[in-house]
Nucleic acid binder design. Sequence first.
DNA 1: CCGTCTTTACAAACTCTTTATGGAACCTTT
DNA 2: AAAGGTTCCATAAAGAGTTTGTAAAGACGG
Lengths: 235, 235
Amino acid sequence: MNERARILVVDDEPQLTRVLRTGLKSRGYDVRAAADGLSGFETFNDWHPDLVITDLAMPNVDGLELCRRLRAVSQVPIIVLSAKGEEKTKVEALDLGADDFVTKPFGIDELLARVRASLRRASASAINSPAQTTLDSGDFHVDLESREITVSGNSVHLTPKEFDLLVYFIKHSGKVLTHRTLLAAIWGGNYVEQNEYLRVFVGTLRKKIEPDSTSPRYILTEPWIGYRFDPGPAE
Amino acid sequence: MNERARILVVDDEPQLTRVLRTGLKSRGYDVRAAADGLSGFETFNDWHPDLVITDLAMPNVDGLELCRRLRAVSQVPIIVLSAKGEEKTKVEALDLGADDFVTKPFGIDELLARVRASLRRASASAINSPAQTTLDSGDFHVDLESREITVSGNSVHLTPKEFDLLVYFIKHSGKVLTHRTLLAAIWGGNYVEQNEYLRVFVGTLRKKIEPDSTSPRYILTEPWIGYRFDPGPAE
DNA sequence: CCGTCTTTACAAACTCTTTATGGAACCTTT
DNA sequence: AAAGGTTCCATAAAGAGTTTGTAAAGACGG
């Protein structure tokens, strides 16, 4: 936090690029822009930004391919911009390692919120790196050794799969997690199509951890895409 | 665990100190407070508490320096209180040997959970010290030399394997122990698949130490994972 | 021979999987 | 925009498959 965070915007629409550049700069970020995936990737290598915002539909190297190339060399947070209805492409991007998405048209405030969240997440995960036996995120406290979980101080008993799923959620708080990603992480690569498993387990988890499981506060649904975990009041 | 655990609170905010003192005392802890790092260190040397909770920002000797001085003379568990956004300091504190941290503002329940976890960890590792000839945990008293065990004052006759298993449970109270872990510890690495051994011995142990072996109070089952030992009343 | 450990067997308990149904979100057409 | 159709989501509950609890018989060693 000593220096201004650097953000790379990759988009082929000059108008949108200008809006983003202005909005981000006014919030104190250091911004550079590129008009296609190829020059975006080059700028990334030269400049090493702290976060990348990229459109999906672009000439030369498109957003998906850019995600792939970035992930091959970096864990930089990626926020994807996509038009409404491009769910399938969005899911592909997220599966390739994008952190979050914003659907066009969007308000600059919404984007700024996502940017803040992604940057905070990135710096937080850097802090928690030393081999930890305990996990903390918002209202949740997890002891990985004793496999005990407390939510706002109340301890909760979870079955093994429920425990694994919740730990995965907590470890990836705020990030949009696709069905495929979650299934691969908990059940293994052979089960990436079994969305029913997820539905059932998310259901039982919600009943155990949500104050009101009919309007979830922690495990949020991202329709057609997956789930997002919000750990509650940030530190 | 026979006596009340002693907790030293080091903080320069009288308001917060009062809340902590009240909350901790109501849970049966013996509490003393100090208003800065210097007097905190002195109190530690006089009183030898079982756990230290310290703020980071303080007059005289600050939290980091207090951690350093404590670690120079003791392995006492340290929980650090830090304000939101002091990530860098938190990391320093953990590097200096702090056990856990809690970010302000926090709920008293969360802090209590951390306190319990830290004390449990500490007592477990203290028990593992080589010179120990006697073990005390909740309702259990073990003489490792004569291999005698009493539960709530009643002496119990155990076979060698039963004795080893129960001692292992007591030494790792509260933690979930997988079948594999237990088998490796008692029978050796070549028997990690013999879950039947464990089933039988847990059964006989329960019949000998549980008041009602049909609803175990000490040796608890964690289905699909293993067992957890709860030594009974912690105070 | 006796106490202890190993092995076997089966019923009970638990988790995970699978299915079914009603409702919600989204897309298409008008 | 609004209606209809389609796909997806939430939930309950039945079913399958494991694991666990318990008793008891066989094996081992002092």
